[in-house]
Amino acid sequence: MAAKSYKKGSIYRKLKLQYLKLLRMKSAPSIIARGYAIGTFLEFLTLPTLGIAFFLLYPFSKIFRASFASAMIGYIVGKFIMLFFLYWNYFVGNIITKRMVNEQVSVGVSHFFTIDGIKENGIAFFIGSTVNGIIVAFVSYFFIYYLLIYYRWRKNQKRKMKFNLS
């Protein structure tokens, strides 16, 4: 059997597909943006809760009257965003819990991934992930909301131009 080869830019193509799915949803922009923000927020809680946050997508979508499909898209795209926030979550959590970051960094990164390291740093990481998740979800809500408004406005303008020229 031949090994599966990945085309250059396949991650880009998958992200673009999720972006187009989000833009073409047939619901109110606030409902879609709310779902996306919920998915992004819950992705920030996935690592500290060891994946349990995934099961909160559907209940949170129902409680906040958001689109479950856009919450799933936000959750998937959030995986790529989360990579840039790993250290920042830990840093913010240490500031909030009043622990010295310099003491923790001197121990080393390898200590962070041991059972003792998770016990010592888990609360700080969870608190930092929660705070940063709320901030990123808030920003992503407005970004997606205005992106949808703009996309639909442009689509409507193109439709008007098409019918005016005929």
Rank of each mutant, 00 (worst) to 15 (best):
A124N: 01
L45T: 00
Q18M: 15
I32Y: 10
I31S: 13
F54V: 00
G108D: 00
L15I: 10
G128N: 02
N102M: 08
I32G: 14
F84H: 03
V139S: 14
W88V: 09
K62G: 09
I63A: 08
N89V: 05
F113G: 03
A69D: 08
F80L: 06
M100P: 10
P48T: 04
M72S: 05
F64A: 12
I76S: 11
R65D: 13
L57E: 07
F64C: 12
R99A: 07
F85T: 01
I11P: 12
I127V: 14
L83I: 03
V77C: 06
G122I: 04
L47A: 10
I95E: 09
G93V: 01
Y36D: 08
R65P: 09
Y146W: 04
G39R: 09
G51A: 13
F125P: 01
G51Q: 07
V92C: 00
P59Y: 07
G128Y: 04
F112A: 00
P48G: 08
F138S: 08
Y36E: 12
E120T: 06
A66Q: 05
M25R: 15
F143Y: 11
Y151H: 12
G9Q: 11
A124M: 07
A137G: 08
S30Y: 13
L47Q: 05
G9F: 15
L148C: 04
S110M: 02
P48V: 02
L42V: 10
I76D: 06
N102F: 11
F112K: 03
P29H: 12
S129M: 00
L148P: 03
L42D: 10
L47E: 08
N121M: 09
F91L: 07
P48I: 05
V101I: 08
L23P: 11
L22A: 14
I52R: 07
E43A: 11
K21N: 15
K62I: 05
I31Q: 15
P48W: 00
F44K: 09
N121V: 02
S129D: 01
R24V: 12
I38G: 13
G78D: 06
L83G: 02
V107K: 03
I123F: 05
G39Q: 02
P29K: 13
Y58T: 11
N132K: 07
P48Y: 02
S27R: 15
L50G: 12
F85C: 00
Y6M: 14
S70A: 03
Q104K: 04
L57R: 00
G133F: 09
I118E: 02
G93M: 03
G117M: 02
T130K: 01
